[in-house]
Design a protein around this nucleic acid. Structure first.
Lengths: 166, 166
DNA sequence: ATAATCATGGATGATTTATATCCATGATTC
DNA sequence: GAATCATGGATATAAATCATCCATGATTAT
């Protein structure tokens, strides 16, 4: 079982976007360069964040991406679900209804016990993810990062951030 | 992100094996038939359970599988890890060390904040899985299953169970 | 002993998913 | 009107997963 790289990319991008001033934006191309990843593919993931209502996109020469809502209202779970989908990790194939001991399908009322256990564990996972907001993650990065990285990021932001007109 | 079918197969098999009397065994072929799945592939997963110390296998004409330890001492987490491995679900590729703002690798001390959050959520998932034992799962199946299924399973067991010599 | 049964392990192919790219389109700003 | 940027679809490539087959070795019944 594995979580795709897209989630990592999206989360890091979201933290950068959360660091923008006001309603400024940052282009997808800059985000790809900053993280050293494929631009075209990253754009796909950013689009998923837009569809999920996490980011909003501004087209045009001074366009880019910005947060669609406050950083404290965006959780890690939101990002994971936007990229990876909301499907359950464990998919019960109703194996109990197969083989020689099976009876009519209507006899199997409640969900399979194994499925129940798996789903409850998954709920615990999602709950833990939802406890981390973009705001808390960004704060964590800020206090633990190397000063040189922070300074370089500041310069890079100054070059690439698109100040809001308003 | 998806958990393979092997986990489902292994879990259901483990519950059947947990229902055997004493040190009796059940052949892999019978388990495959019971669940209506590929025998050769199921054998691979059963092997993984043996390697993990969950089942033990008895070769020979009257051989098969039985639990390697008490059902109350085997958790759903054990089974998931035996089949799916113990690798973390989220694998940090240290994306922060790439791109134009990167500095020397030694400057990145602690783990990335996103990685920390992901790992903590994963720990919650594993903890929840570990709360379900084979004994509790088997009990849950027993009380919620259709009476006809239970009776058929009993007959099936009588035909396929290999009583222990001792 | 011999044959039957069963687990083991490796090699292999098929299927699916994830990753990545390209190109055409439409919207916005200079 | 031209440049810039996001969008969306089509498509290729790589990797992980699923599944099967076959050869081997161990054990037990006859």
């Amino acid at each position: 079982m594995k979580l795709g790289e897209g989630v990592e990319w999206a989360a890091h991008c979201a933290i950068i976007v959360a660091g923008l001033a006001g309603r400024s934006t940052i282009p997808g191309k800059a985000l790809a360069e900053y993280h050293g990843v494929s631009e075209t593919y990253l754009l796909k993931h950013l689009k998923a964040l837009v569809t999920a209502g996490i980011l909003e996109s501004v087209p045009g020469p001074r366009g880019g991406y910005r947060l669609a809502r406050d950083a404290a209202e965006i959780t890690l779970l939101d990002i994971v679900e936007a990229i990876d989908g909301k499907q359950p990790v464990f998919r019960c194939t109703e194996i109990r209804q197969r083989g020689p001991t099976a009876v009519e399908a209507c006899a199997y009322r409640g969900p399979c016990g194994i499925n129940r256990a798996m789903l409850s564990a998954e709920a615990a996972w999602r709950l833990a993810l939802a406890e981390h907001t973009l705001a808390s993650l960004a704060a964590g990065v800020a206090i633990s990062a190397d000063p040189r990285v922070i300074s370089r990021t500041g310069e890079w932001l100054a070059r690439n951030e698109r100040k809001s007109a308003s």
